[in-house]
Structures are given as C-alpha cells and as structure tokens.
C-alpha cells in the first residue's frame, strides 16, 4: 500500500515543535498526547528539520536518576540546551507515493513508532503509526 492511500484511510496528525523550544516544552507536548512517541521539529516554513523521540527526551530530562553516564551524556546533562541541540537532524521520511513495505524496515531500525510522510518540500502530510499497522495486521487473523 502507498503512504498516501494509508493516510487517506488512517489519518493521523503529527505533533510538531519548534527547534527553539526548550526540552520541558517538548516534554509537555508528549504529556498532552500520551499516544505519541515521536515529535517532529519543523522550521518557520513548516518543513521537517528534526525528530525527537520520547525515550531520548525522557533520558535527557531524567538524567539525574541514572547511576551511569557516558561522557557524552554527562555533558548533555550539564549544558542542557534547546530542542535543536538534541533532535536528530537526519530524519528518515517517506514520500506519499512510496510503498510502506519498501521502507518499513529502515524505520523500524531507527526505533521510531511513527513514520512521517512529507511532500516534495518536506512539509508534513501526516504520520503512519506503527501501532495502526500492527492493528491492521492482527485484524487479518
């Protein structure tokens, strides 16, 4: 099935945040949408420029609860920073005409729970939630 067909049948809105937002602001978005585990960072023109996952954000904000840190995590804990500094700027996106079966594996490897679908200018058209794919798969049985 193509991404555009899936979005038409299973519309799901993406949660977005500005790159200049603080980490607590991003966390508040996750708490407002408990089903969401991936938020997308969009620039002033609405183009996707980054991704921030729930586990990554929770790891940053709850660092004081961890008994061990790598050096990289130590520095992150000390300096904090905005969403821009902690987002993944190499976002794996999907085009509307791509088939889900062709790109699903790559997204699973990135440990995300939703696949962003974007137009030619990287503006978000929606997301394909892996939970929805799973729901459809088990309904076949």
């Amino acid at each position: 099935m193509k991404a555009s067909d899936w979005l038409a049948a299973h519309p799901a809105e993406a949660v977005t945040v500005s790159p200049e937002a603080s980490l607590p602001e991003a966390a508040a978005l996750f708490l407002e949408h408990p089903e969401v585990r991936d938020i997308y960072v969009v620039d002033a023109e609405g183009r996707v420029c980054g991704h921030l996952g729930f586990r990554r954000l929770a790891g940053l904000l709850l660092a004081h609860l961890r008994p061990t840190h790598s050096r990289r995590q130590l520095v992150e804990r000390v300096v904090g920073g905005s969403v821009r500094e902690h987002m993944d700027d190499h976002v794996l996106v999907m085009r509307p005409d791509e088939r889900i079966s062709e790109v699903f594996h790559h997204h699973m490897e990135r440990r995300v729970e939703a696949i962003p679908v974007v137009d030619g200018e990287r503006r978000l058209l929606g997301v394909i939630r892996i939970a929805d794919l799973l729901r459809k798969a088990i309904n076949r049985y």
């Binding site: 980054g50 990554r56 790598s70 990289r72 821009r84 500094e85 902690h86 987002m87 993944d88 700027d89 190499h90």
Partner: peptide, 9 residues
C-alpha cells in the same frame, strides 16, 4: 554530525 550524535556514539 551536528545535533543528535547518538547514532555515532
């Protein structure tokens, strides 16, 4: 690598 260096480390 810019932001988010997790994939490299």
């Amino acid at each position: 690598g810019g932001s988010h260096a997790e994939r490299l480390f």
